[in-house]
Write a protein that binds this DNA or RNA. Structure first.
Lengths: 220, 220
DNA sequence: GCAAAAGTGTTCTTTGTACACCCATGG
DNA sequence: CCATGGGTGTACAAAGAACACTTTTGC
């Protein structure tokens, strides 16, 4: 039985959630994919698939689910989040074109891959509620307004700026850089960076992170 | 690359969380395992593995994680929950012995399988907080006292009976059967059955289920 | 001076948690 | 009659959600 690794790479640009796809000459659009052969196992294969397709290095991935494809192949699906601005893409060997596509306007994909994208999106949205996923989608330094905008795109709804500030700062997921940026008109915003630590680290250690109920159910 | 399917089957008996293991003549103890060949793909292979090892049919499984084993094999791990009382076990073809082991007193297992058990347990405990996992570990009809005891074993701590009753009944995960059972001394308890539906179905549809933060992180 | 975005606290509602007593049966 | 487990409601604490105004800049 053949084993494949496929990676759904997401970014948020200009308020739109996008997916990274590549295409061989004249072929169908596809997620970054490869066989798990070579050093390092599945996780390494996922990283390598993205690097080989789009020239993007040092991304973090997370295993999503393993699909079977008509009993002949298993596809181990991964999720990756990056800031498109910091990672310019360029087609790798054998790749005619790589592009970001809005997640709700994807071209026809290879067999089985729509399910990977759909499940990746579901997991991404679920994680939004309890993990600081946005820091993976933002530059090194970012304003809380930018961070909030990312969350709003992922969640598909507006958030209250005051509550957002309070919760993010209290959770300790970001730290002030001391710098400030004037983005045009309006008062300049303080710039923050990721504080590295994950959520659910409040003082009482009793706090529990949350997930949308469907978050880790298997995909349909 | 070789593909294997391995299933960590859990039950709760007499207040102890147990794992189902089998052993070929003279061999090492092992989880139910098989190749994914044959009809029906990975999920069917998981069900078949348990049936072939222990003669247990019609269990529900859930995919956990896919491990790579030294770059030579990938193991797709599954979680299954059953009521040991309703499913007597008997060794299948080529199986010398099948047994339930207390989860904290396992024998030496095949390579890589301790990680499967550990991750299955982590996921099981995480799901406990937001899904009615206990109904899969109980007979058709059960008392709320029995159900609470299962949760206490999974969570490793005592629960307040009043709050437990209120929350379970409000969540609508069980329904009264109308029957009553005298279990010895003490007032007879009402018998309930699973109401089928899943959690997080409260009236306002605003309710969000919860998960321990580490619940769907990859295993170490 | 006005449009635009950043920044700051408080109130209310909901959820979770702690807690004490009576009820029905077996021995 | 008493030991054992079943069944019921209320008070307090914590978390989440809603909400208005002042500050700083570009134009």
């Amino acid at each position: 039985m053949r084993v494949r690794v496929e990676v759904a790479v997401f970014t948020v640009r200009r308020g739109v959630l996008e997916v990274l796809l590549g295409r061989r000459g004249g072929g169908t659009w596809s997620l970054a994919a490869t066989g798990p052969d070579g050093a390092g196992g599945l996780d390494a294969a996922a990283t390598r698939a993205v690097e080989d397709m789009a020239g993007i290095r040092s991304i973090t991935t997370e295993q999503l689910y393993t699909f079977d494809r008509a009993g002949e192949e298993v596809a181990v699906a991964y999720l990756a989040l990056i800031d498109a601005g910091r990672h310019p893409i360029s087609p790798g060997q054998d790749v005619a074109e790589v592009r970001w596509f809005a997640h709700d306007d994807l071209p026809s994909l290879e067999e089985g891959q729509p399910a990977v994208v759909a499940y990746g999106l579901q997991r991404l949205r679920a994680k939004t509620s309890y993990a600081p996923v946005a820091v993976n989608l933002l530059p090194d330094l970012f304003t809380l307004g930018e961070m909030q905008a990312v969350y709003e795109v992922l969640l598909g709804r507006g958030l209250d700026a005051r509550n957002f500030r309070r919760d993010v700062l209290r959770a300790g997921v970001v730290e002030e850089s001391g710098e400030v940026r004037a983005e045009g008109r309006g008062r300049p915003a303080r710039l923050y960076r990721s504080a590295g630590g994950h959520f659910a680290v409040d003082a009482r250690e009793r706090r529990v992170a949350r997930a949308i109920s469907s978050g880790d159910d298997p995909p349909a």
